[in-house]
């Protein structure tokens, strides 16, 4: 199985990344090299194996769903590229 440059461009779009023609060629090559390497897993018999999502036997726990103090609005906005001191400001979302 090999990925074409157009498919790589589509994946880049899904990941919110832009690539130049040259970059696309190079990333497509890397992607194919990696996919070829990982294809070795297809030879492993996993027909009766459950997927492992949590690597240790000590299970994660749930906390009570209760209100707790959190960061202030002022603190939360400290690292924002653009704000009006109440909201994050971003370019227009809705088409005119």
């Amino acid at each position: 199985m090999s990925v074409t440059k157009d498919e790589a461009a589509y994946i880049a779009k899904l990941a919110n990344l832009n690539f130049s023609e040259d970059e696309l060629v190079s990333y497509t090559h890397d992607l194919n090299e990696m996919l070829e390497y990982v294809s070795q897993l297809q030879a492993v018999d996993t027909s009766s194996v459950e997927p492992l999502t949590h690597p240790i036997s000590s299970e994660p726990w749930m906390r009570r769903d209760e209100l707790r103090p959190s960061v202030s609005r002022e603190t939360a906005l400290k690292n924002a590229p653009q704000t009006d001191n109440e909201y994050f400001i971003v370019p227009k979302v809705i088409k005119q």
Binding site: L41, Q42, V44, T46, V49, E50, P51, L52, T53, P55
Partner: peptide
């Protein structure tokens, strides 16, 4: 890919 790798992770 993803599910397969999770299965191999268990092995």
């Amino acid at each position: 890919y993803y599910r397969k790798a999770q299965q191999v992770r268990r092995l």
